[in-house]
Every structure is written in structure tokens, then in C-alpha cells.
């Protein structure tokens, strides 16, 4: 019996995001914009911090009860947290999901360049990035500014 199961019971329907680096679960919550679900009575979010892990030493887990992470969201999670495990749960059955990597990211990340048009107040320009995985960066499609993939969590939009 794992430490996790001692802490939180299994879910019958939803998504379990496992092997999140320790103390990074908040970034996952922000990346998925889970706060937008607060009016959704069916959804529960269970966050476990700093759980012992054979693979990582310590890890975070996010359980999303009655919420299925979209393919687009799964791809971004896989890009930012390469070690993450995404499990879809349907009727207690666990289905491990291995998403591909995104080629483009729309709307989730603010541009690190303060003078970018996407950072101009009231301007309806949605940030859009091309993923350049081979160079470890994403590039703003408007202003060309590069952002290292590992820095993406620092630039998540509120």
C-alpha cells in the first residue's frame, strides 16, 4: 500500500496527475486554470504535496475528481513537466495517457517581454507561442521573444 493511498482514497472518475516535482502542484493548478471550475459543484481538486516517491524521492500529486484534462492541457503538462504521469480514471479503471508534445501554445502563458503587444493593457492580443523543443524554448509568435521551457511556470497567466 503506497503512502498516497493511505492519505487519499481512490477516485472512480477523473484525472490523476502523478510524478509532479515536489512543491510544483500549484503551478499545475494554475496551468490548468482550475480556479475557473469553482462554480462547478461536481469537481473536486485534491492536491498532495511532498509525497514520498520511489522515482523522484518526493513528488506532488493532483487528483481531479470528475474532471478530465483536455488533450491540449495534457500536452502542455508533458512539455513543462517531462516526468509527469497522466492517468484518466473511468469507472475505477486506470488508463495511462501519454500525450505528444504541443507545437503551439495559445493563451496560457504571458510573454516575458514587457513591451510585447500581448502585455499592453486592454489590447485583445492573446499570447501565442511556437514550441521549439529541440532548442528548449518557446517563441512568442507576436514579438519573437524566447522563453525557456523550464521557466514557463513563472509566466503562467493569472
Amino acid at each position: 500500500m503506497s503512502a498516497e493511498s493511505l492519505l487519499v482514497r481512490k477516485i472512480d472518475w477523473g484525472t490523476v496527475l502523478d510524478h509532479i516535482p515536489a512543491w510544483r502542484a500549484d503551478q499545475v493548478v494554475r496551468l490548468l486554470n482550475l480556479e475557473s471550475l469553482k462554480r462547478d459543484a461536481d469537481v473536486s481538486v485534491i492536491v498532495l504535496y511532498n509525497v514520498p516517491s520511489r522515482k523522484l524521492g518526493r513528488k506532488d500529486i493532483v487528483k481531479l475528481y470528475h474532471y478530465m484534462v483536455s488533450e491540449e492541457e495534457a500536452k502542455i503538462l508533458a512539455l513543462v513537466f517531462p516526468q509527469i504521469t497522466i492517468n484518466y480514471i473511468r469507472d475505477w479503471k486506470v488508463e495511462k495517457h501519454s500525450p505528444g508534445l504541443p507545437t503551439e501554445i495559445v493563451g496560457k502563458i504571458r510573454c516575458p517581454e514587457t513591451t510585447c503587444i500581448t502585455n499592453v493593457e486592454r489590447e485583445p492580443a492573446t499570447p501565442r507561442y511556437i514550441v521549439m523543443r529541440e532548442h528548449g524554448v518557446i517563441a512568442c509568435e507576436y514579438c519573437d521573444t524566447l522563453l525557456e521551457i523550464e521557466r514557463i511556470p513563472d509566466f503562467l497567466r493569472e
Partner: peptide
């Protein structure tokens, strides 16, 4: 001409 980077593409 605009002071913001990316203004022309937008």
C-alpha cells in the same frame, strides 16, 4: 509604427 513588439503582426 508602434512602440510595442509584435504590434505589426497583431
Amino acid at each position: 509604427r508602434h512602440p510595442a513588439r509584435g504590434a505589426a503582426r497583431f
